[in-house]
Design a binder for these strands. Structure first.
Length: 423
RNA sequence: GUGGGCGUAGCUCAGCGGUAGAGUCCCUGACUGUGGAUCAGGAUGUCGUGGGUUCAAAUCCCAUCGCCCACCCCA
């Protein structure tokens, strides 16, 4: 382990075995997203810092202390700590509203300078969606539905959907005042963190984990009792829609998102087995954001999920035993050995994944390598086979052996037919 | 950012002042007509890094880097 260089704290390598799991997840997730009409967008990793401070919020921890920020030609730039602001920027910049591109998704890394922990890296990966220009509650329902499908695509069992409404900006501001006033009497007894939250982001006092604080705030006024009529109607319609689709959820009046731009519907999906980082997906509506960033008054809603967390929650181990080659070529005798390079190439031209022993070990050694290579079949070529125009094909998991044509095109057909028979 | 645990072979880990170990993996052979078994041989480490204490440090002390866990925050 005395390695001269190691990756930076909180930055990690994804190795073969894991990459295949990620690819499989991404393929399933993209399919699900496509079914809802989402198209992929890939914003750059670096962006002007101001975009994030404006959108995520000056007072949030993400902006306050977790961004990787530096200077480029006199501009303050940052590695993106999340993608929503960027997608909004791109939406405005390229006039995507006029091109009918209102449903967008992304897959990629984000960066936050936090202390690493299980399910929390400094470079982590998110898959997320943004919908622009749709304000109806049905949209909220669809966005939540596709969120659940994405979580399912990772193989997470028994996800828990938590739902809340934090109202429109007016009811939210009004509620904040009511909440602060109500907690004034117990202020001194709250934990230190909650006392600062009371100043900076009072809603967050409600989801403090300290038991003592929870008891103190148990009877605090609830946001769902202070929604405007519009907000109330919207939330009821979202719930009705979820009910109609048979989607189970739990209303949690204490569910508050940490980013400033959220309004109305907020939601979160939690999974078991992740310790304290059990939130696997989070999102909500952000109707004012596009306008705030200089665009027209366009409603928006979206969510983001942590891919590392999703895969961890699904509890799939690295796919070590995965089949990575279709066949391993085993040669016997100098004639077959000489033809191996060319034969392998011809088989690859038939779109087969082929391995062979370039080092030229004996039969035993080659079979050993065939077994380890993760190939489905060992294809044996010797003098005998060459003469008869045949190869011996051994199924490496069952041990069954049979003969097949030597000619690459015919062999490819033979192997495919055989694989299908067995599936 | 705060608190705690841990860094020894590619991997999992034992050793905890006195010559660096096990299992596994890897390599070679038995093996030029058959791999996963068995047998025989072999390779591998600045004991995370830097400093200190000591006749002697993987072992004790300090610092530092990284990992893990909790807080915080969030996906």
């Amino acid at each position: 382990m005395a390695v001269r260089y190691q990756s930076l704290r909180g930055f990690s390598d994804l190795l073969p075995g894991e990459t295949e799991l990620w690819q499989a997840f991404e393929t399933r997730a993209r399919r699900a997203l496509a079914r809802y009409g989402f198209r992929e967008i890939r914003p750059p990793h670096l962006e002007k810092t101001e975009l994030f401070t404006r959108s995520v919020g000056e007072g949030t921890d993400i902006v306050g202390k977790e961004m990787f920020t530096f200077e480029v030609s006199g501009d303050s730039v940052s590695l993106r700590p999340e993608l929503t602001a960027q997608v909004c920027r791109a939406y405005i910049e390229h006039g995507l509203d006029r091109r009918g591109l209102g449903r967008l998704y992304y897959v990629g890394p984000a960066f936050r300078k936090e202390r690493p922990q299980k399910g929390r890296l400094r470079q982590f990966h998110q898959v997320g969606v943004e919908v622009f220009g749709e304000s109806a509650p049905e949209t909220d329902v669809e966005v939540i539905a596709v969120a659940l499908e994405t979580v399912a695509a990772a193989g997470v069992e028994q996800p828990r959907l938590l739902l809340n409404s934090i109202g429109d900006p007016e009811s939210r501001t009004a509620y904040k005042r009511i909440l602060v006033a109500a907690l004034e009497s117990v202020r001194a007894q709250l934990c230190a963190d909650c006392r600062t939250r009371l100043e900076r982001n009072p809603l967050r006092v409600l989801d403090c984990k300290v038991d003592h604080c929870r008891t103190l705030t148990a009877d605090a006024p609830r946001i769902d009792e202070h929604l405007s009529d519009d907000a109330r109607r919207h939330f009821d319609a979202v719930r009705a829609g979820l009910d109609r689709l048979g989607i189970a959820y739990q209303v949690d009046p204490r569910l508050v998102r940490g980013l400033d731009y959220y309004v109305h519907t907020t939601f979160e999906i939690q999974a078991e087995g992740l310790g304290s980082q059990n939130t696997v997906l989070g999102g909500g509506r952000y109707d004012g954001l596009v306008a705030q960033l200089g665009g027209r008054q366009v409603p928006g809603i979206g969510w983001a999920a942590g891919i590392e967390r999703l895969l961890m929650a699904a509890g799939v181990d690295t796919a070590e035993s995965r089949e990575v080659l279709d066949l391993y070529l085993v040669t016997l005798g100098p004639r077959a050995r000489e033809g191996a390079l060319e034969l392998a190439q011809k088989l690859r031209a038939e779109d087969l994944r082929v391995g062979w022993d370039t080092a030229g070990h004996g039969l035993g050694g080659q079979m050993k390598r065939a077994g380890r290579s993760g190939a489905r079949y060992a294809v044996l070529v010797g003098d005998d086979e060459l003469e008869r125009g045949l190869v011996s094909v051994k199924d490496l998991s069952s041990g069954e052996q049979s003969e097949a044509p030597l000619e690459p095109g015919e062999l490819a057909v033979w192997l495919r037919r055989r694989s299908e028979e067995q599936c």
